[in-house]
Design a protein around this nucleic acid. Structure first.
Lengths: 200, 200
DNA sequence: CTGAATTCCAACGCGACCGTTGGAATTGCG
DNA sequence: CGCAATTCCAACGGTCGCGTTGGAATTCAG
């Protein structure tokens, strides 16, 4: 009965998912072709269908994978003070700088505006733990409570994500070319600090 | 020689552009079909090609049109104090709430990451006038100068735009359904105020 | 009315992509 | 070795959308 280990199946799946992330991030659900994913992975197209189902299902799979990766890479359990909020915002920005695929996948997904996203339950849990960390910090008076915790957390992510959402706008607003990834990160950390600083 | 006024050409062009905005905003450049645009406008597909060229050109045309509209609808020449920044952020949010097409077009464009966007020169001018208004307010010490003017302006727009960029994230983070468009607007205006408030 | 210019549109060629299928190659097992 | 199970893949049918084209309908000038 034993499932054969022949043809290193797991490795093939991994290569396909890696290629799918790159293609979907670059071209979106509609702009990506299964053919190109398979070619990039050096695998036949048919494997995609037997392993992952059709194109939307594959998209959902790779997005869920990437979300799990970022959840592991940028933890957030405890916040004590505005500086910790800035650190978190900076870490999110830095992660996206190294892995621009995730933001782009999220944006492509957002533009599809499906009635419900795949994996909604676990993703909601994930975001709620972030919000809960902000709530606890508010209750212990270490950060500002002028904004509801959910809004504050959401807006901090907005500061970090907007650069990747509309890069063309970022480029045009900083036309004097005085802007670098490093200065962008410094600016958003400063901004996050101001959002989280206890009102005086 | 006189060009005939027959078949009300201008009206046909207007209807085509209106339909194109709706379709492009909903499905993006790749997901939109010329056929559907023409059907929605009640006009034959071929008119699109003779009037506007191919699909990317049409996309650029309608995006430029929408940018001109928002520039006219949400002016910004003078800023005096954090409250004015909040007012501006709120106005931007409100405009996008009524015309969600523009943000979506910008996001689709951003995801294409073209080396240069159409109409780059005039759009750069447009953004630079916004930045200049922030700069003047900083020089007259009515708003905070802890952030470069370009970053501050950019991040204020981030606060207003993020809701539309990742609506699925907004929905999941506010899972308790305590969030409304009105509360979102209030939150972002509060946040904008805190970003712009002179440091103490 | 006749003819030229312009707007409109039905139909087409062509290429691209999705998802499938039939069968070949490889592996483990008896 | 022979057999069954599994992984792999080249090729295909069908559909869809882009951009074009040939000609019909409408308008205006003479």
């Amino acid at each position: 009965m034993l499932v054969g280990m022949a043809w290193n199946t797991e490795e093939t799946k991994r290569k396909l998912k890696e290629a799918a992330v790159a293609e979907f991030a670059a071209h979106g659900l509609g702009g990506t072709t299964m053919e190109r994913i398979a070619r990039r992975a050096g695998v036949n197209k048919e494997r995609l269908y037997t392993y992952f189902g059709d194109k939307p299902r594959l998209f959902a799979t790779v997005l869920a994978d990437e979300l799990n990766k970022v959840a592991a890479a940028v933890p957030l359990d405890h916040l004590d003070g505005p500086e910790a909020v800035a650190e978190y915002a900076g870490a999110v920005y830095a992660y996206h700088a190294e892995h621009p695929e995730l933001t782009r996948l999220l944006l492509w997904e957002g533009l599809l505006d499906l009635p419900a996203v795949p994996d909604e339950a676990s993703r909601t849990d994930y975001y709620r733990t972030k919000v809960a960390a902000f709530e606890r910090a508010q209750q212990s008076k270490t950060i500002s409570d002028t904004l509801p915790a959910a809004d504050l957390a959401f807006l901090v992510l907005a500061l970090a994500g907007w650069w990747y959402a509309v890069p063309q706008m970022a480029r045009m607003m900083h036309a004097d070319s005085s802007s670098t990834p490093a200065s962008a990160k410094a600016a958003l950390m400063q901004a996050a600090t101001q959002l989280a600083a206890p009102s005086n």
